[in-house]
């Protein structure tokens, strides 16, 4: 430090001219050394895009072999897949479209005069989300409601111009009625017709609403399907459906709110495919017992959905009044 003092005295120069250039020199030399290093290499391998699914010949049998040409059958007897997409408009200020997409197996027995005895087993019930909140139908509920038998379906005409009309498919959740079609829905929690249908300890049935809460409710949905044969193994047409709900209670107040809903028949459709192998149709009756269970359906459903069953996407503009 004595050296610095003596240097300062000898130089006799003011400190500003000496220090500023030195400072600038030091700073400029340091800047170049402080650039970030190149970022590290990724430890994660590149993954090729998933190949698009589908492309397989869905008319091939479940064993992968080509089937015989499709042929109209005289009768509808046998096992069918029935995929319904019922559109409902939910009014929460705006009107939003919601779909109930249900996949059934239907075991059909046709009488001589065209009457149809149908046994409906719902294998899947999906409700599309409303403002990102999706209601889920627990397995216990599904098992408690189905199967349902109807005996007033009808097939009219001769192939290939046959027309199909279902009976009123009345799906009652959590409530029993003497006349399911005409009795009024319960309006208070003391109504004796309400009962613990899914055996979970709560009256009515339990519907899970998103991750938020559980709704304990009763519901009646009455649906009529009518359509035409578009191929020997295919019936397509419209669905007319009315849903009434009564929310008994909920685990959270948010789920106790009953929204106003409207049927939207213009966007409600169904498609029914023969799946018992008759007439060259796909055969999902893997155990050859004459019917197709949900388990058997699950094995072959992918092929059917990829090629033959299209999911209708939500379009809220269809619900604007």
């Amino acid at each position: 430090m004595e050296f610095l003092s003596s240097f300062a005295k000898r130089s006799g120069s003011p400190s500003i001219p000496l220090t500023i250039p030195l400072t600038i020199l030091c700073l400029l030399s340091g800047m170049s050394a402080c650039q970030p290093p190149s970022p590290p290499m990724s430890q994660f391998e590149e993954i090729e895009s998933n190949p698009s699914m589908g492309g397989e010949d869905t008319r091939a049998g479940s064993d992968g072999q080509d089937q015989t040409p499709l042929a109209f059958q005289e009768r509808l007897d046998g096992a069918w897949l029935h995929y319904s997409q019922i559109s409902t408009c939910v009014d929460i200020g705006s009107s939003l479209e919601q779909y109930n997409r249900s996949l059934y197996t239907v075991q059909v027995t046709q009488s001589e005069h065209g009457g149809l005895l149908e046994r409906w087993e719902a294998c899947e019930i999906d409700l599309s989300p409303v403002i990102s909140v999706r209601a889920q139908v627990p397995e216990a509920l599904r098992q408690s409601v189905y199967p349902i038998e109807t005996d007033a379906g009808l097939v009219i005409g001769l192939p290939p111009s046959q027309r199909y009309a279902s009976a009123a498919l009345i799906e009652l959740w959590g409530v029993e009625m003497e006349n399911p079609l005409l009795d009024p829905m319960p309006k208070d929690t003391d109504d004796e017709r309400l009962y613990d249908m899914d055996l979970d300890g709560e009256v009515g049935v339990t519907l899970r609403i998103g991750d938020a809460c559980l709704a304990y409710m009763a519901q009646r949905r009455v649906t009529h399907y009518h359509g035409v044969f578009t191929a020997p193994d295919t019936i397509e047409g419209e669905a007319l459906s009315i849903t009434e709900q009564y929310i008994i209670d909920a685990s959270s107040p948010l789920c106790k709110t009953a929204y106003q809903t409207r049927s939207n028949p213009n966007r409600s459709v169904f498609k029914r495919l023969r799946i018992d192998g008759r007439g060259g149709a796909i055969n999902l009756d893997l155990d050859d017992d004459g019917s197709v269970s949900c388990d058997e359906l699950s094995i072959g459903r992918n092929e059917l959905f990829i090629e033959r069953l299209a999911i209708i996407e939500l379009d809220h503009s269809n619900c604007q009044r």
Binding site: Q35, P36, P39, M41, S42, E45, E46, I47, E48, S49
Partner: peptide
């Protein structure tokens, strides 16, 4: 302040897919 953060390019196959609703 000349502060710099450089990102390693993202490898393909890790994006959030569009699964609709």
């Amino acid at each position: 302040k000349n502060l710099d953060v450089q990102l390693t390019p993202r490898p393909s196959g890790y994006d959030i897919p569009n699964l609709g609703s």
